[in-house]
Structure formats: C-alpha cells, structure tokens
Amino acid sequence: MSGPRATPSLSGEEFAERYRSASRTLWTIAAGILGSPSEAEDVLQEACLMAFPKRAEFRLGTNFTAWLGRFVRFVALNHLRKRVRRGTHAEDPGRIEEEFVGGAVLPVDERGSLHADQQDFDDRLVRALAGLAPVACSCLLLRAVLELEYREIAEVLEIPEGTAMSHVHRSRAALRIWLAPEPGPEPRPGRMLETEERT
C-alpha cells in the first residue's frame, strides 16, 4: 500500500514558460478590465509576482492561463479601484458626455472606411469602453483583438460560454449606440467595480 503522494507542482522554469506563452492573453484581460493599455503590463507583472509563490496551488492538467488570469483580474480590479478612489480617471466623464451629446460625426464614409480623423474615432472608442463592465470589455478585446473563440474566452475568464458571447454582443450593441452620429443614450463612464474578488 503506497502512502499519499505529493501533488506535483510547477517548477520555476515551467511557471515562467507557461507565463510567457499566456502573456498576450493575460495582458489583454488586464487591458480590458482597466479599459486602457497603459497599466496592463504592470498589472501582468504584479499578478505574476503574486502567483509565483502560490504556484503549488496550480493543478497540473488544468488551464494555466485561467488560473493566472484570476490573479490578473484581481490585480487589475485593484488598480481600477485605486484609480477610482484617487479620482484619476483616464478621461473626464464630463468630457465624454459633452462629446456624445454633441452629436459627433461618424468618422467612417459610406464604404465603411475611416476618415482622416481616425484618431478621433479611436479616442472616442477607448473612452466609450469605460462604459462597459470590466469583464465585458475583456471579452470584447479577447474576441476582437486576439480573435479567440468564445469557448477559449469562457475558459480563460472562467465564465460560461454563453455569457462570453452575450458580453461581446451586448458590448458591440452598446458601442454602436454610443458611437452613432445621432445622440443616443450616454455611456456611463466609470467602471462598475467588482468590489470583491480574491484569488
């Protein structure tokens, strides 16, 4: 009769290798929660430092990206919470409101090509993302930027596939309204914080 076997865990090198291969997905999750790419890399590093000492808790055979993604979401939400508490929003909500109510011209022509003021459209889009819930924004970015399947998005964010699909579709619908040339319902700048999440 054999005794209890120790649970195998990742070595430091194995952790680093998996971390490296997952970094793009994790970065995108962080950027989605923050609504901005500027702090995503810092979040990624911080999450890595938090997860590394706990790597023994990772169960081999499970999804490493999803496991580390929990840390990323937690750290990103903390950054977001700190930003909110400090009042250092990326953009002034009043400015967003002013621009949307002002009926900006849609910067695409009839063929769907961007006008010269593409930069403006991109800026408005980024600001509009602040009106999305953090996880919804992450779903949208994982789909649009990394072109992940809904099944993959669901796995890394640990949500049902239908929820991932719903987040993407609703986010797109909201952006269509918020970025439309006609004044529509205003986005609600300022992210809904998931105030309780601990990995």
């Binding site: 970094s23 793009r24 970065w27 995108t28 950027a31 989605g32 790419p37 890399e41 695409v108 769907g112 961007l114 593409q118 459209f121 991109d122 889009l125 980024v126 949208l140 970015l141 649009a144 930027v145 797109r172 952006l175 970025l179």
Partner: peptide
C-alpha cells in the same frame, strides 16, 4: 469591423 480595427490599433499587446 471598424470598431474591431480600432480596438486592434489601440489594444494590440506590445
């Protein structure tokens, strides 16, 4: 499609 293109311009991992 335009939104996706804009997202890729702004949110492609470095």
């Amino acid at each position: 499609t335009e939104v996706d293109a804009a997202l890729r311009r702004r949110f492609t991992p470095p």
